[in-house]
Design a protein around this nucleic acid. Sequence first.
DNA 1: AAATGAACCTTACACTGTAAGTTGTCAAGC
DNA 2: GCTTGACAACTTACAGTGTAAGGTTCATTT
Lengths: 225, 225
Amino acid sequence: MDQSITKQRARGRLSREMIEDAAFEVIEREGLSGFSMRKLAAALGCEAMSIYHHFPSVAHLHEALIDRLIGALEVPDAGLPWRQRMRVAADDFRRIGREHPAYSTFIVTYRMNSPTCLAWLNGIIGLFKDGGFDAERGARLFRAVGYYLMGAVLDENAGYSRGPSAVNTVSDDQLARDYPNVVEAGRFFGAAEFDKTFELGLDMLLDEMERLRDGADISRPSGKV
Amino acid sequence: MDQSITKQRARGRLSREMIEDAAFEVIEREGLSGFSMRKLAAALGCEAMSIYHHFPSVAHLHEALIDRLIGALEVPDAGLPWRQRMRVAADDFRRIGREHPAYSTFIVTYRMNSPTCLAWLNGIIGLFKDGGFDAERGARLFRAVGYYLMGAVLDENAGYSRGPSAVNTVSDDQLARDYPNVVEAGRFFGAAEFDKTFELGLDMLLDEMERLRDGADISRPSGKV
DNA sequence: AAATGAACCTTACACTGTAAGTTGTCAAGC
DNA sequence: GCTTGACAACTTACAGTGTAAGGTTCATTT
């Protein structure tokens, strides 16, 4: 009994911020699926139920974590060139994933509708409007670029390059023999190649958006389907 | 005791195929997080542990499910125009998500390295090579387009448009007042708009790839950063 | 000094995946 | 026809999960 009090004292009183800090640590250490209120409590030196005094449920805790990540972002300044503003916004989101790899699958899966997240989304959508697109174009481009971003964060942090997850794994020999294209392309799938690949795709989308804005009509540029 | 036997008999003996069928159903009915071996067993009219005779773990079961989805795909025929082959391949993957919305977050999260999945990936990477790109370009474009695809499947089936997940929800009044861009753009976020939005983004990437292939240099087309 | 209420703990419940051991069923060999 | 063996299903049990309900401690206010 004295022990638990000592343990408590050693850490001081709990606070939402402390709990959030520890949650980020436990998630990265144990993985997203290995995260639990009991492990979080152990990391904090308290009992699991004590956390419920500060967050009524894990869902509330997760919301606070997401809010902290998104809340730290700011929509790139209107003084900058448009293309650069887009790039900064994309990099911001991508950096969150890189700094919280184990949490990234949750981040891209999360439906952002807390006030904090809505404020950021509102600013980013405004960024598309600033690009000179009408409401419909802006909305669709926002989503299309968002798809690319979310997929990138997901794949860079939880994807193929992070090692196998399938149960029936394939040997290197078999890989070389039966899936030569995978092996050949695989040279450019490592983490060291992420930036260059991401830039390529982002530039493609940005180029095309500028073309769109400058009056070009999208789709079948050479009469093809 | 007689009851359980009767129950068993009514369904016949278990098979991997039966279990997989039921698994898809239970996942869609209960949601991915609501899926469990016990609920699956209940749907099959057997005990949870009986499933373990056919699949040694849930991970093995999931692999079989993914294999069935991916294994049903075939790489678009080389007789078709390249752009159309890309489009068909993208639509194939996207259709899987649409037909298994509750499972889609697992699909995009899953690291495909079973033989079945590798075979499909190998074919798709070959498709990029057929587009006239060298190994590096092909590899990077494969990933970039993959990002877009995965993000689209994720967002269309588990994203914002599927309803709120945050705990602190925002009223419509507050939404209209504080996040006007979100409301305005939201008109184009519904499921009815998915196809058009997806096509826009896919066309952008395809256009840019054809431009790339035809010798144009990517990035900063107008000298911008 | 008494009362209040926040902060934390204890216990308990329904759920999860699955390891280990047991029973029921049925086909092959004698 | 009986026995044997294998397979498929069941039963039980365990360690883990989120969290509801209620108990305890202690600083602060009155």
